[in-house]
Design a protein around this nucleic acid. Structure first.
Lengths: 106, 106
DNA sequence: TATATTTGCAACCGAATGGTTTCTTAAAAA
DNA sequence: TTTTTAAGAAACCATTCGGTTGCAAATATA
């Protein structure tokens, strides 16, 4: 069973759940109300998100509040870093080319 | 058939392919040489990457060179943007809290 | 021209995935 | 105390996924 953050964010419902609980903790039922799916389905998604530590839970009585573990999101950012450098240099190269053409026009 | 960038980067082999062709275009055979898998398997991954426009191909005779469409990677960055703001404010809040404590110690 | 090489495509297979249904546990409410 | 509510766990099912095998098309080479 693969369970990494990239697999976790691959599912659109899970990305929607992440967006939903990013700003406030919510219970499975409350989350499920926002989608055309069952509580059990949401529960499964939450389990996957919890397993890869993207989400943390806090129990209040019989209710369990889920919220985003924002630190974990940085892992995606870290992975992107190498490519960000790449597209920035490419942008700079284009920038240079453009200013070069400008000069030639002058 | 879901075919978006998040599903594309969910597979570790595909992420490895992306890393491999990020700096230089490569043929399917050359790519497959870097993994413990068959050329056909790599070909399938390349098809998925091509379908979601993460990869572009250039034909030279009977060889097809695949390279990364770096612009498409920005989509992930764009998605991350909302959460980056979140973890930055949280960091700032922690920062404020720390300097506040420092002052109190003084 | 005949052969070898590079590649894509379709069919197949086992494993994983997402969803539903059912059941159980625990806490809150009547 | 009995009933209702919130939630996790397990079993099941259809679909998707990743990989392999076999085949066909196109290009290069002998």
């Amino acid at each position: 069973m693969r369970r990494d953050i990239f697999q976790a964010i691959a599912d659109p419902t899970r990305r929607a759940i992440i967006a939903l609980i990013a700003f406030q903790a919510m219970t499975p039922n409350a989350i499920a109300d926002n989608f055309n799916t069952t509580r059990q389905s949401v529960s499964k998604h939450l389990r996957i998100l919890t397993e890869c530590e993207l989400v943390k839970q806090e129990q209040h009585g019989r209710e369990i509040y889920y919220s985003l573990e924002i630190e974990k999101m940085k892992e995606i950012d870290k992975w992107l870093e190498q490519y960000r450098k790449l597209w920035e240099t490419r942008f700079n190269q284009l920038d240079k080319l453009l200013s070069k053409n400008k000069k030639q026009k002058k």
